[in-house]
Every structure is written in structure tokens, then in C-alpha cells.
Design a protein around this nucleic acid. Structure first.
Lengths: 375, 375
DNA sequence: AGCTTCCGTGAATCACCCA
DNA sequence: CTGGGTGATTCACGGAAGC
């Protein structure tokens, strides 16, 4: 009753000592400097939408803050790649330090920068879990007809390392995708209409991301109460969606103007209530039930005949929850595995029994046990 | 009148001196060594499907217990990112040397390798024109429910430099995409069924690419007679499609087994005949052929009655190539659009006429015109 | 013949707890 | 850190087999 279902694939991270974090605040100044003031291993997720500005002549700054001139010829091109790489390595390094061992990173970019970002984050030890394509339903056409319509951007989702136990709300994603596994290509419209923030009639930020994108990212890879850090906060899409979904957030943003826009925006945002936040639960996240407990409770009494769906094998339930089939014995899983000669077997779905004239998987009895034993 | 419209975005490359190239041959051995024997600036396009450097753990089984046949071949094994980067830099450097100044490069990869490949090719001076996402209609699911279904691969299309005049057949792509600009995400099934090459009942190559992918690449960025080099030839998909489309090809392949499979395969491949190729050329030139030229040539004389397939509307052809229906007039496209109240209309397929007792779309007359006006 | 069902398979970085 | 036990987990398509 009243338990918020979480959707964790992995076991909860070990409880951490409380740390002092600027939750719900936008830190001014350069994001590398700002992140340096945060403690080690303190945030659950970093979502970053760094400047793409290679070859665009925009404002590209070296880590020391000096400005890189717009470039066209080859030598400068190289110098600009170098500067961009240094910048990327600097903020990714800080992000890595600030992330918990089981935390994760999302970065979004286009072909101008995403290959460099991806290679550098691999070099730093991040372990790529997926690259995700944001497929835009309404991209800007290629007016000159010289290339393919640039109709997507790329996100990289990475854990801290190969062995780290990242959060993935598999069931929530499957539910969101009409009971099919969520794929690595997401069809989402660009941000426009009422969602697009305006100041004095013009768009407040040139690259405002759609809230649907952040919604999916946060729903998929965080749980309620997790701390999300966005080093390139802009107009605060990450903060707004985090607040709505009951996640904590921290932003970094250099430009005072954007900080103002974001603050106003997030103030207006209302968290969803508890019931709306409840998501579908993965079977993996459910408490484990021993088959013996189900037998002990009398839901499947000792002596019951259980069998696979095609009735190739019939086994008898013993008092301790083990099964016997001819001379073979074992747990519901182990015996199912051995009989089939399979590498593994989920006994709950493999074995069936008759109850009230109907054939049901023994998992039905487990569900009954769970219902009866709620706290 | 009567000028054949080509679809090149850029001016034609300057005529080159003939060079001695192993056209239509598969070079054995390491591709870097093999490419070293090719002259500078001699090929128009490089298409490369390098090893992805997958780093797989143990065995993987499906929920039904069956085993997943993973790519564990020795050619995909690298000891470190450094080793993979060195390998990548080596083959890209040779590819760059062999490419003409206005040539272009395609590389396909997954998140395991594509970020490293992309960053290195940028470092070498290649200029990325698009990243293209191959969205698989039927990818393998994520059996354990631990990530998003990895449902796409990424291609990078790059020219030799920012100023180089690459080939892009905009019109052909727009036609292929139902009169919409071709986007950077391509929906194509994985290679299976009859197209999937088998030897002794098992797949000949673990990573055979679909011909539709190569078809689109070659149709978009080469013209008839261009030389296409594939340094990782495998079972020769590039060669087969190149031959079909009237492009010249050169392959490199280390494994004798694959060379044998590819040779047999390409021998069986028949080039599309002139008329089919012409059809394609005309298709891409579609709107550029004035209906007036077809009328002027007498293929559809002024006064001819044209009508839509269901004969809801009948119009009369005027001498200048415009159409009249009651009081409405316009081009074949404009009038068709207006009568239907549609946002757009391809008049070539909308309007029909009678010829020799048969009803044909007026596009048939355009095909005849193109055949008669070939150079 | 035609329809349905079953089965195989594809570039995959594919579990986690506890002793 | 390793090993062993429990138990969670799949989509589209083509071809064969069954009806």
C-alpha cells in the first residue's frame, strides 16, 4: 500500500553519506569552474547539451576562457578542433568526478561535435550503453539542396565504466512504447509552439530542446529523488522536466539572461503528484519470493503435480519447495533447466499447475502470495 | 530545348589523365597495403565498412534459451582503443590519398567505433557533409532488457575538404523519397532472406550489408562510370550494386573465402540495361524536363486530352505545355494540385493519356523523350 | 492451393546476489 | 574476487511445416 513502485533494473546503490549540494540552483560562471565546487561522487545523472559550435564561428572558448576565433582555413580548423577537444575533456572530466560510481551521463550533439565528444568520453573511461538518435519530425529543410536534410541529432548514454550498475527503467520504457522495447531511435518533434520560450517576441534560446526528450531521458535512467546535473543549463529544460518528474536538479549557466529565463520557467513548473509518477514495475525490481514460501503458505500444497506447457515433463512438489521428476530433483529453475538441457530456465513461467479446472503458471500463485503479504 | 538536365549540385570535376586502375578486381591482403599500390587521386568514392571493434562479454542466450551467434571473428579483435585508432588512421590516410580532390568518403559503424572514426577523419581533413542513420526495421532485440534496442547504425558522408565540389544527386534522392527531400535517417531492413548469402547452409559473412543501403549511397553520390573503392569488401555488396548501377568498382579483402564468395556473386550480377538506367536518370531529372518539351517533340501533341486515373477530371494540352480544364489552367503539377485541393501533385504520374488504345501516365512520354534525347 | 503456426535468426559491448 | 544459485528476458521477418 502506498509504496511507490520503482523501476530499477539494478539494485539500489549503497547508501551514501549526505553531501551538501546546491539542489535546485543554477550556478553562474563557467561550468568547469562551477562543477569544481561540487563534491566527488554526488550526482546520479549528468545531462549535457554542450555548444556544438565547430565550424560555425560562434563563441568557442578555451578552458582558460580565452576566445577562439572563427576559422575557415585548414590550420585554424585544426586549432579549433584542438580547442574544442580540450574544452570537451575539461567538462567531461569534472562531470566524471562529480558522478556517483553507478551514475550515468547523457550528451547530445550533431555531426559537428558528437564524434569528438564520443571518442573523448570513451578515452576518459565512460562506457557507452547506447547511442540514441533523436529523429525530428519537423526538421529544417536543406534549402540549397546540397545535402540530405539534417533530420536528427545524436545522444550518447554512457555509464561510468563497463562494470558499473547503471539505472535503466526497462519496464517504464516498454510501457511508454506500447509494450514493445524502446528502440535507440526516438521520434520527437522539435521544440516549437507554446513550449518554445520567447522573450520580447523572439526565441529566448537558439537551441532549446523539447521537453519530451528530457522526459524520456529522465524517466528511463533516473528514479524519483535522483540528482540530475546539467552543465549547460540554457533555459532550463532539464530543470523543468526534473521538477515535474520529482527529480532533484542542479544547473550551470554562464549567461545571466538564460539563468533568468530558466528560473522563471522552473518556478512555474508543478511536480506531478505521486500517483502520476508511479510507473510500471520491472519484474526484476519486485521482491524475490522463494517457491518454498508459496508451498508453505499452502497456495501450491506439497504433492501437487506441476508440468510444462506441452506436458512433456511432469514433476511433484515436495514439502521443501523442491521438485521431483523420476530420479531427477531440483529447484523449479534448476530442474526446468536440466530437463530441457537449456542454459537457464525461469521456473515460475516454465512450470504450470491446475487450479479450479484451469491451467496456470506457478507464477500465478506467487502473485497471490505477494498480494497476501504486502506490508 | 532538349538539354539533358543533370542533377549535379556542383560543377563537373576537371577531366583527368587516364590512370591505370585495377577496375573490377578484389585486391588480396591488408587493405592499407593494397591501397598503397593505387595511384594518387584516382577514385571517385570510397565506401568503407570497417571492423566495429565490438567488445563482447560472455555468451548470450535468448529468453527461449537459444544461443545468439555473435560476431567473434578475429578480424574484429583489437587490443585497445589506441590500436583501433592507429588502424583507423592508417586506412583513412590511404583512402584520402587515393581519392580525387572532389571525391568523397562513406563509412558505416556503430557506437562502438563510429565516434573514433568520425573524430579521426575530421582530424585528417575530411569535411563531414552528413551523418546518416540507418534505421533498421527489424533489429535484434535487447534480450536481457538492459538497454534500448540497438536499432540503428551510423554512416558518415564526408568530402575531401570544406571547399571540395562533391557529387550529390539531389533530384534522384528527392524522387526516390516521393518528392520530399531525402532525410538523414534511412529506413531499411537488415539483410536477410534470399539476399543473404549462404555457404553450406550458414551465412557466408556475419555482417553482410543490405543492397538497398549501397544502392542509395551510390545513387546519391556517384554518377555512371565513377570508380568506387571498398577497402573492406567482404562479400562484395558494394561491387554488386556498383555493377548493377553502371559504376566501376575496386575491392580490398584479406580473407580468401570472402573474395571467392564476392567474385561468384558479382559475376552473376547483371548491369541494369540502358533503358532502366535511363529511367533512373530521367527520374532524377523529372521536374527539370519541361512538359512543353515533350509536347513540342510531338510525343503528346497539343489538343491531347489528359485525365487522372479515375477520370474525375479531363484537361486539354495547349501548345505551350500548359493544361486547361474548364476555366482553370496551369502546369501539369499546378493544375493537378489545384483540382485535387492537394498540397502538391506530381503531374507526370497524375495525368494520363491514351496511346495505341492503352492508357498511360504522361511520364511514359517523358521516358520516350529522354531516350530520344540521350547524349 | 491457401491459410496458419512454428521455428530460426540478425554487428550484442545483455544479471545480480551472496557466501 | 570468484563461484554458484536464483531467476529475468525478445522483435520482425522469412521459410518450412502443418492443416
Amino acid at each position: 500500500m502506498g509504496v511507490i513502485e520503482t523501476t530499477k533494473v539494478r539494485a539500489r546503490r549503497a547508501p551514501e553519506a549526505p553531501v551538501d549540494l546546491p539542489i535546485g540552483r543554477i550556478l553562474p560562471g563557467d561550468c568547469v569552474e562551477a562543477m569544481r565546487r561540487l563534491p566527488d561522487a554526488s550526482v546520479d545523472l549528468v545531462f549535457a547539451d554542450p555548444p556544438y559550435n565547430l565550424q560555425l564561428g560562434g563563441d568557442l572558448n578555451r578552458p582558460d576562457g580565452s576566445h577562439v576565433d572563427a576559422v575557415t582555413d585548414h590550420w585554424d580548423q585544426f586549432s579549433s578542433f584542438k580547442a574544442y577537444d580540450d574544452f570537451t575533456r575539461a567538462w567531461l572530466t569534472e562531470a566524471r568526478r562529480v558522478l556517483k560510481p553507478d551514475g550515468a551521463l547523457w550528451v547530445i550533439g550533431s555531426y559537428h561535435n558528437i564524434f569528438r565528444v564520443g571518442a573523448i568520453l570513451q578515452d576518459l573511461g565512460f562506457w557507452i550503453l547506447n547511442d540514441v538518435v533523436w529523429r525530428k519530425t519537423n526538421p529544417m529543410p536543406n534549402f540549397k539542396g546540397t545535402r540530405f536534410t539534417n533530420a536528427h541529432e545524436t545522444l550518447i548514454w554512457a555509464s561510468m565504466g563497463e562494470k558499473s550498475r547503471y539505472q535503466f527503467n526497462y519496464r517504464a520504457m516498454k510501457t511508454l512504447n506500447d509494450e514493445l522495447q524502446m528502440r535507440s531511435d526516438w521520434v520527437i518533434p522539435i521544440c516549437s509552439g507554446a513550449e518554445r520560450l520567447k522573450e520580447n517576441g523572439t526565441k529566448a534560446h537558439p537551441t532549446q530542446k523539447p521537453e519530451a526528450l528530457l522526459y524520456r531521458v529522465l524517466l528511463a535512467t533516473t528514479e524519483k529523488g535522483d540528482v540530475v546535473l546539467d552543465p549547460f543549463f540554457g533555459t532550463g529544460t532539464t530543470g523543468a522536466v526534473a521538477k515535474r518528474l520529482g527529480r532533484e536538479w542542479i544547473g550551470c549557466e554562464r549567461e545571466e539572461f538564460y539563468r533568468g529565463v530558466a528560473t522563471k520557467r522552473i518556478e512555474k513548473e508543478l511536480p506531478l503528484d505521486e500517483s502520476a509518477l508511479t510507473t510500471m514495475q520491472s519484474a526484476r525490481a519486485a521482491p524475490k519470493v522463494a517457491f518454498g514460501a508459496v508451498v508453505e503458505a499452502g497456495l501450491i500444497p506439497p504433492g501437487t503435480q506441476v508440468f510444462d506447457k506441452k506436458r512433456r515433463w511432469v514433476a511433484t512438489v515436495r514439502a521443501d519447495g523442491s521438485l521431483v521428476h523420476e530420479k531427477a530433483t531440483g529447484s523449479i529453475h534448476g530442474l526446468g533447466k536440466d530437463l530441457q538441457g537449456a542454459p537457464s530456465c525461469n521456473g515460475w513461467s516454465f512450470w504450470h499447475f491446475e487450479r479450479g479446472g484451469k491451467v496456470e503458471p506457478i507464477d500465478a500463485a506467487r502473485q497471490d502470495w505477494l498480494l497476501a503479504n504486502e506490508d
